[in-house]
Structures are given as structure tokens and as C-alpha cells.
């Protein structure tokens, strides 16, 4: 059953689409950021999955072990997580400002105010 062996990647695809859909379809600015986080997390899982070697262990040198997981994607994703946290922080800070200025965080209400 090959498709079951790709279990991780199916999860990645599902999470990615769920996140992307929330970003596009939701009108609430906070929920959009949640969607963006889910979208990014799916990419993180994707990178971690591709680092896994069947039968491999954690990349710490141990006598008698020859197969290790690839540590590089882990390091990359550590960086990407930091970037993601920073993005979420900036995004949320912007939403706080938007709430101060418009009194709402619903996209359609904001556009209605701007056009009025």
C-alpha cells in the first residue's frame, strides 16, 4: 500500500489546503492569521518528513549505528518557525492597530467603512 507509506505527505496536502482555504474564505482578520499559520505548519511537516530515513535514528553519533535522519531540514525548519512566529507577531500587531482604527476586525465591515 504505497499511498499509506506517504501518510505524512497526505496530511501535509490536507493541512495546506485547509490553511489556504481559511486565508481566502475567512473575513475575520485573526482567523486569516490562524489559516496562514496552518498553511505554514504544513510546510514545516513536509520538511521534517523528508528528513526521515527508514530505520534511521536521531542524528547523534552512536557506536554501531549507521543510519541517521537528515538533520539539515530540521535546522532549516527551526529557522522557518522563527520566521513564522515573527510573521504572526507582526500580523497580530497589525490587527490590534486595525481594531483601534476601525473598531472591527471583519474585512467586509472595514471595506464598507473605507468606501463610506
Amino acid at each position: 500500500m504505497e499511498w499509506f507509506g506517504l501518510y505524512n505527505y497526505w496530511i501535509v496536502v490536507v493541512l495546506m489546503m485547509v490553511g489556504f482555504y481559511i486565508v481566502i474564505a475567512q473575513g475575520n482578520l485573526i482567523k486569516k492569521i490562524v489559516g496562514l499559520n496552518i498553511f505554514q505548519t504544513s510546510v514545516f511537516i513536509f520538511f521534517i518528513s523528508l528528513a526521515k530515513l527508514e530505520g534511521g535514528t536521531a542524528p547523534i553519533h552512536v557506536a554501531g549505528v549507521s543510519d541517521y535522519s537528515n538533520p539539515l531540514p530540521h535546522v532549516l525548519i527551526l529557522t522557518a518557525i522563527v520566521v513564522g512566529v515573527a510573521l504572526t507577531a507582526v500580523g497580530l500587531a497589525l490587527v490590534v492597530r486595525i481594531h483601534e482604527l476601525y473598531g472591527t476586525i471583519e474585512e467586509d465591515e472595514i471595506h464598507a467603512q473605507d468606501e463610506a
Binding site: 482578520l29 496562514l36 510546510v43 507582526v90 492597530r97 486595525i98 476601525y102 472595514i110
Partner: peptide
């Protein structure tokens, strides 16, 4: 005040763009 909203929209689209780039690099 539209500046903050413009920045938010840029953040959404820009992040999706760079995340796509990250998937491609993967």
C-alpha cells in the same frame, strides 16, 4: 488608517508567496 490594512493585505499575500518559494526549495 488604510495604510495598516494595506500592510496587512501585503503580509497575507507576501507570506503565501514566500511559503510557496519554501515548498519549491524543499
Amino acid at each position: 488608517r488604510q495604510a495598516v490594512m494595506a500592510s496587512y493585505q501585503y503580509l497575507m499575500m507576501g507570506t503565501i508567496g514566500t511559503t510557496f518559494l519554501l515548498i519549491g526549495i524543499g
